[in-house]
C-alpha cells in the first residue's frame, strides 16, 4: 500500500518535472527538474529491477545532468540569444500540450495494463507521461539543449516501461551508455561552433 502510494507520488513528480522542462525559460530550472525526474524514474524502475540496477540509471542520469550543466554554465553568451529566439511566448500552449499528454496517458494506461498484466498502473502511467512529455518537447523546439532534454525525458519514460519487461544487465548497461552518450553529445554540440579553435591542430 505504502509502495503504491510512493509510486503514485513518483508519477506526480514525473508529471510536474516534465511540465517544468516543457515550460521553463531557465535552463537551470530545466536541468533541476530533470534531476528530480530521474529520482522519480529511479523509484518506478526499481518496482521491477533490483536496487543496484535502478541506481545505475539514476547515477547515469545525474552524470548527464552534471555534464550538460557544466557545459551550459561555460556558455553564458548564449543566455540572451536563447531568451530572444526561443521562449518569449506560448506557455499556455505548452501547458495545453502537456494536458493532452496527461489525457492520453490516463486513457491508455488502463488498456495497456489490461493487455500486459503485471506491469502496474503507476509504472505505465509514469512511463507514458515521460514519453509523451519528451515527444511533445521535441515537437516544439529546435534548441540543442532542449532537444537533448526532450530525448532524455523520452528515454527515461521508455526505460521505466522496458525495465518491467526486460531485466538483462547488458541492456541496463547499454541504456546507461546511450544516456551518457546523449549527454556528452549534447555538450559537444553546444560547444561546437561557439568558440574559435586555438590552433590548426584541433581541426
Amino acid at each position: 500500500m505504502v509502495t503504491d502510494t510512493v509510486s503514485w507520488i513518483a508519477v506526480g513528480l514525473a508529471l510536474i518535472t516534465s511540465t517544468a522542462i516543457l515550460i521553463s525559460r531557465d535552463w537551470r530550472v530545466s536541468l533541476g527538474a530533470l534531476a528530480v525526474q530521474y529520482l522519480a524514474a529511479f523509484w518506478l524502475v526499481t518496482r521491477h529491477l533490483p536496487l543496484a540496477m535502478g541506481s545505475v540509471k539514476l547515477i547515469a542520469g545525474w552524470m548527464v545532468i552534471a555534464t550538460l550543466g557544466m557545459t551550459r554554465l561555460s556558455l553564458m553568451n548564449l543566455e540572451q540569444q536563447e531568451e530572444d529566439a526561443f521562449f518569449p511566448r506560448g506557455q499556455w500552449f505548452r501547458i495545453a500540450l502537456m494536458g493532452i499528454v496527461v489525457l492520453v496517458a490516463a486513457g491508455s494506461a488502463p488498456r495497456i495494463e489490461a493487455a500486459i498484466p503485471g506491469l502496474g498502473l503507476p509504472i505505465i502511467a509514469g512511463s507514458l507521461l515521460l514519453i509523451g512529455g519528451g515527444v511533445a518537447h521535441l515537437g516544439i523546439t529546435s534548441d540543442l539543449l532542449r532537444v537533448i532534454l526532450g530525448l532524455l525525458t523520452m528515454l527515461a519514460g521508455f526505460e521505466i516501461l522496458y525495465a518491467a519487461v526486460e531485466s538483462a544487465i547488458l541492456v541496463t548497461g547499454l541504456l546507461a551508455a546511450v544516456n551518457l552518450g546523449l549527454g556528452i553529445l549534447g555538450s559537444y554540440l553546444l560547444i561546437a561552433g561557439s568558440s574559435p579553435l586555438e590552433n590548426e591542430d584541433e581541426l
Binding site: L174, G181, L185, Y188, L189, A192, G193, L197, L203
Partner: peptide, 17 residues
C-alpha cells in the same frame, strides 16, 4: 550508439550543428 558516434564526424568543433 553508432549513430551517436557519427554526429561528431558530421559536426566539426568549429561549426554549429
Amino acid at each position: 550508439m553508432a549513430a551517436m558516434l557519427v554526429v561528431p564526424m558530421l559536426v566539426p568543433p568549429d561549426q554549429k550543428a
